[in-house]
Design a protein around this nucleic acid. Sequence first.
DNA 1: CATGGTGCATGAGTGCCATAATACAGCCTC
DNA 2: GAGGCTGTATTATGGCACTCATGCACCATG
Lengths: 115, 115
Amino acid sequence: MVASPKPVYLKLRDMIAAAIIDGTYPEGTLLPSVRALAAEQGANPLTVAKAYQQFQLDGLVEVQRGVGMLVAPNAATRLRKTERDQFLTEEWPAIRQRIDRLGLDAQELLAKQTG
Amino acid sequence: MVASPKPVYLKLRDMIAAAIIDGTYPEGTLLPSVRALAAEQGANPLTVAKAYQQFQLDGLVEVQRGVGMLVAPNAATRLRKTERDQFLTEEWPAIRQRIDRLGLDAQELLAKQTG
DNA sequence: CATGGTGCATGAGTGCCATAATACAGCCTC
DNA sequence: GAGGCTGTATTATGGCACTCATGCACCATG
């Protein structure tokens, strides 16, 4: 692996997704503006816009030009379902295969607490 | 995520690593030549060479110019240990955190058999 | 030595990412 | 309507990673 050369806009996208899922931004909430989030994260406004764009296409945020972006109804639920499906079908199989190949013990993995 | 835009040389590197770990290429075995593997995988010889390069730096393969590349002693063991450590310290925490965030049951996932 | 197999160094080309500056379109408050 | 906040479109630029084509250095074989 190459450490974390993950594109900034994807990192931002993940941050926002996580915040929506865990309820930091409930339904109907006004998300941080493109410029505000850019300033806070030290990124370019266009890069932030690119991150938000992903959610617009999926209808997870309502764009009100001149006002801001609102978290759409059931965004958290839908987002969780989407990420869950994608994780289970695309990511987990490979991870599971890797665990087996490395001969790792399930108990040992479960013992580790989050964060 | 964007499906799998994973660089070719990393995919190849993983393939080779897996093959070494599971004993497809035991210690002292001559690995497929750069050109041969390139032809087989439909990749460029230099891309394959880049994949092999990672193993040379770690001393997991012995390069004999004009002959080929040999699997170094204890390569499988060392490789498994390296990958294991890296997985446990760098990858699993993030995965575990994601599992929790998505409301999935880690124990249930690990209980399932591969494939 | 000639041949054909190795790996390797150099260089160029391509595309994605991130940034910047500027301008426009819409909504709210005063 | 004026001013200030939203998101958006346009264009240009620099950097970086990935991939590839060419040619060279090395070794084993006959």
